[in-house]
């Protein structure tokens, strides 16, 4: 290859990079998920003001919901969350339960649910909500593969998210991944609880999350555990339930420590 062609290619690449950087003014704002490897792969975490897709098979709906609720919990940071869902999705995989959401460590007070009749209304509502910069995130839950949700619709959502700085999270149940303008795309399955004695009950939610698309980096597959108390993802604990709880408060030891320090 000649030097001239190389330099042309290089200059074109530079231009494309500049165009992309110009479009993503919010792209710098990233939120760490908590899972070290995943964060490293995503160069710091999940990008705000972008579209992220989570795919799952129909019977894995609850796991995918848990995963996307976790993502929403990470990116919203005490701002309202709008959850748009299709009627059919509720019949198939159950309604989002506020008690369950509270158990995951999220705040039901910040959630507004929109019950859209069909994919058309859901898509339209999500686009509307994305334009409102008071929100933390918008979750769009769609069942199956409606033809309205094509590349154009996905591009519109991306532009709306970039303009307002609101993160769009698409929960696609019973759908196979298709080309779109999403920043990241995940396939989520439920994972086993970590191995332990069978009489141990299971612990925190565990996901088998596969990153199948990442616009600005490599992909990967990890087992992630959602820590309900800290509200972040992590590597699965070796022991799902602590053998002995760590003491929260030991006044006599603390007193001893201060005396020592004073003496020293």
């Amino acid at each position: 290859m000649t030097g001239a062609r190389m330099s042309t290619l290089a200059s074109l690449r530079g231009r494309i990079e500049r165009i992309e950087a110009g479009a993503d003014t919010h792209a710098l704002h990233k939120v760490a998920l908590g899972h070290a490897e995943a964060d490293a792969t995503l160069c710091g975490g999940l990008a705000r003001a972008a579209v992220h897709e989570v795919f799952a098979e129909g019977h894995q709906g609850a796991a995918a919901t848990g995963f996307i609720a976790g993502l929403a919990g990470r990116v919203t940071s005490r701002r309202p969350l709008v959850w748009v869902r299709q009627d059919f999705s509720e019949i198939e995989s159950g309604a989002l339960s506020m008690s369950g959401l509270a158990e995951l460590g999220l705040d039901p007070r910040l959630l507004v649910t929109v019950r859209a009749a069909d994919a058309d209304a859901a898509l339209r509502t999500a686009a509307d909500a994305l334009a409102c910069d008071a929100l933390g995130a918008v979750v769009l839950e769609v069942w199956g593969e409606p033809r309205q949700l094509d590349l154009v619709a996905s591009r519109k959502l991306t532009l709306a998210a970039q303009a307002s700085g609101v993160t769009a999270l698409l929960l696609r149940l019973a759908a196979t991944p298709q080309p779109s303008t999403a920043e990241t795309r995940w396939i989520v399955r439920a994972a086993h609880s970590p191995p332990s004695a069978p009489w141990h009950a299971w612990g925190a939610p565990v996901f088998d999350a596969e990153l199948v698309r990442n616009r600005h980096g490599p992909v990967g597959r990890w087992i992630m555990e959602w820590k309900c108390d800290e509200c972040l993802f992590s590597e699965p604990a070796a022991n799902p339930q602590p053998v002995a709880a760590t003491p929260a408060h030991r006044p006599h030891q603390a007193a001893a420590a201060t005396t020592l320090r004073r003496a020293g």
């Binding site: 609850a62 919901t65 309604a95 506020m98 509270a102 158990e103 460590g105 309900c228 108390d229």
Partner: peptide
């Protein structure tokens, strides 16, 4: 809302059938 019990796994499901 009622507080969740710390360091317990979720006691209520995330999706509830009507």
């Amino acid at each position: 809302w009622p507080d969740r019990i710390a360091s317990e796994p979720p006691l209520r499901p995330l999706r509830l059938f009507e």
